[in-house]
Design a binder for these strands. Structure first.
Length: 288
DNA sequence: TATACGTGGCT
DNA sequence: TAGCCAAGTAT
């Protein structure tokens, strides 16, 4: 096990000088702003989140404000961030916060975890970044940095392992855990990237086990790629784009026009309705 | 544990 | 250019 200080000091100093100025990190950030950013950032790059996050904060500065509007408005305002179920869950989250927590984002990890759309990572991130709680942050960036620096492997395992959690816990500093977490994330996002890592600019290059081992390429089987073209997901995306663009009920013909395969199209549309992302009105038209 | 779930930029 | 990849969660 590497001496934690050998990682802490260089990474924290690097973060001090290289952190991006992101609006959810400013001193005047709110827990709600942090929560919204974390949900939006799930599987979505910062650059695409930025403008939408600003729109949401201006329109819904509090959980109560979002909860006061129909969930369809959240889905529409989600725009093209992808995985629109997150918008639905964020709306449900705002409703739960309003009804169960007096409109205040909870600071406790377990309480956060019980909210819709919030899993292990997001609960730790909100508890840490918004409230200073001491929790291990274990997202894809942190997992990659640790895999390389400590385990000498190019990529972490497909699923988060107990060993990874133990390592993250072991490296957690007594003081300043949130800053440590965000610093490692930032290092993974800007330097220790998945492809073409910039080891020249890495503050821990001198102690990185993977680099010292000669950067051996990933051994195991190739990681399963995400197919998209022709899938139900693509079909759902097409259908939802039509509903988002329209500000009134949409005749079914308008949906039929964007996907050839009728069987797949019906299945996708039923799925959207079942998920609560789309609604069927009495006259057979559709809306968010 | 494996799978479903959007979207678009980058190499 | 086709695939890889991005601050995951729910089932």
């Amino acid at each position: 096990m590497i001496e934690p200080k050998l990682l802490h000091l260089p990474i924290l100093e690097w973060y001090e000088n290289n952190a991006r100025d992101l609006p959810w990190r400013t001193p005047d950030r709110t827990p709600w702003g942090v929560l919204v950013s974390e949900i939006m950032l799930q599987q979505t790059p910062v650059a695409r989140v930025l403008p939408v996050w600003h729109e949401w904060m201006a329109r819904w500065p509090t959980p109560k404000a979002l909860a006061a509007e129909p969930s369809g408005e959240a889905v529409r305002a989600w725009g093209r961030l992808g995985y629109p179920r997150r918008a639905l869950r964020l709306h449900a989250c705002a409703t739960a916060i309003t009804e169960r927590h007096g409109g205040e984002v909870p600071s406790d990890h377990a309480t956060l975890l019980a909210l819709p759309g919030i899993g292990e990572y997001t609960a730790a991130a909100v508890a840490g970044f918004a409230f200073g709680g001491r929790h291990a942050i274990l997202d894809t960036n942190v997992r990659r940095v640790f895999a390389r620096a400590v385990r000498a492997e190019e990529y972490p395992p497909t699923a988060t392992s107990a060993a990874e959690r133990h390592l993250a816990e072991a490296l957690l500093p007594e003081l300043g855990a949130p800053r440590w977490g965000v610093a490692v994330m930032e290092l993974g996002a800007l330097v220790c990237t998945a492809r073409a890592p910039r080891c020249e600019g890495c503050p821990i290059a001198g102690v990185c086990a993977w680099r010292l081992a000669g950067k051996p390429p990933h051994a195991g089987p190739a990681r399963k790629g995400q197919t998209y073209a022709g899938t139900d997901r693509q079909c759902r995306g097409r259908l939802l784009a039509v509903l988002r663009a329209a500000h009134g009920p949409v005749p079914k013909a308008a949906l039929d026009a964007v996907w050839e395969d009728a069987v797949q199209r019906e299945r996708a549309l039923d799925g959207l309705v079942a998920d609560g992302l789309a609604q069927v009105l009495e006259d057979g038209t559709y809306c968010l």
